[in-house]
Amino acid sequence: MLPKPIPPQPGQESVWDYPRPPRLERTAKRLRVVFAGTTIAETTQGWRVLETSHPPVYYFPPADILPDVLVATPRTSYCEWKGMAQYHSVRVGQRIAPDAAWSYPRPTPPFAPIAGYVAFYAAAMDACYVDDELVVPQPGGFYGGWITKDIVGPFKGVPGSWGW
């Protein structure tokens, strides 16, 4: 059974108005990721993926990520919309967050603009920001959406939401 969507207030978006299949769109918002006390990624040239019941997933261009903080891992996953994902651990000094970021080296044609771009699990980082607002990680640990005050749910990832 699908949950009852929270009505958005002015200036908010409901994740229940996002499409399925998902939509890729540019964002000029300032995106920032902090790990081990270091800003490891910052951009105003990102993309966001919007999918029904999910908060946006933000993708960073590789040029806006510090060199040598991403370490490719053997983990992969498959998205029916975007294709095969490759995972990366995040490393700063001696601190490592295993499989804390992912990218699509060869995404499907509708998602070709994010080839090589990187998304981060907010829960594995010290902090992630959208326009200086601290994000809340999408619940559940499987999905990588970032929740901000301008997004309303309920969000997939909470217990009992697997079939949404």
Rank of each mutant, 00 (worst) to 15 (best):
A36T: 11
G11M: 05
G93S: 05
R95W: 04
F120T: 00
P61T: 11
H54M: 01
D132G: 01
D99I: 03
R32M: 09
A101G: 05
R30I: 02
P3D: 13
D64H: 13
V34K: 12
P74G: 12
A122Y: 07
P19Y: 08
P61L: 14
A123F: 08
D150P: 04
A127R: 14
A28G: 15
F60Q: 07
P19S: 03
P159S: 07
T148C: 12
V15M: 00
D17K: 10
Q9K: 06
S89Y: 04
V90W: 14
A85C: 04
W164R: 10
Y121L: 03
G145H: 15
I40F: 05
A97E: 05
W102F: 15
D68A: 06
P62D: 09
Y58E: 09
E25G: 06
G93L: 09
D99N: 13
V130I: 11
V90S: 14
V118G: 01
G11Y: 01
T76R: 15
P19W: 02
P19L: 03
A124E: 10
A115C: 06
E13G: 07
P113G: 00
Y104R: 10
S53A: 13
P61Q: 12
K82N: 12
W16T: 07
W162E: 15
P62T: 08
T148D: 11
L70D: 07
I96F: 04
Q45C: 02
D17L: 13
G163D: 12
R106K: 14
K149F: 08
Y58H: 11
P8H: 03
L2G: 04
L50N: 08
E42H: 04
V57N: 10
F111Q: 15
V69T: 12
V71E: 13
D68W: 08
Q45R: 10
A123C: 06
T108N: 10
S89C: 00
E13Y: 08
V69P: 13
I6L: 06
T44M: 05
A127W: 01
W81Y: 13
R26H: 15
T108D: 05
C128Q: 08
E42V: 00
P105L: 10
G144Q: 05
K149D: 14
S77D: 07
Y129Q: 05
L134F: 01
G153E: 09
A63R: 02
K29H: 11
A85E: 01
W146K: 12
G46Q: 02
R23E: 14
W16A: 12
L24K: 11
G160K: 09
L134P: 02
F35Y: 15
D132E: 04
R48L: 13
G145I: 08
Q12H: 07
D68K: 09
V69M: 07
E51W: 12
P22G: 08
A115Q: 06
K149M: 09
Y104T: 03
V158M: 15
S77K: 10
I6Q: 12
E13A: 12
Y104I: 03
V33W: 06
D132Q: 03
P98W: 09
S14K: 00
G93T: 06
Q86G: 01
A101D: 04
G116W: 13
P113I: 01
P56L: 07
T73W: 04
R75V: 01
L70F: 02
T44R: 11
P3H: 06
V49F: 11
G37V: 02
I114E: 10
G157L: 08
H88T: 10
P3T: 07
P5R: 02
Y129L: 06
P109Y: 02
E13I: 06
G140F: 01
D17S: 14
V130R: 13
I40Q: 06
T43I: 03
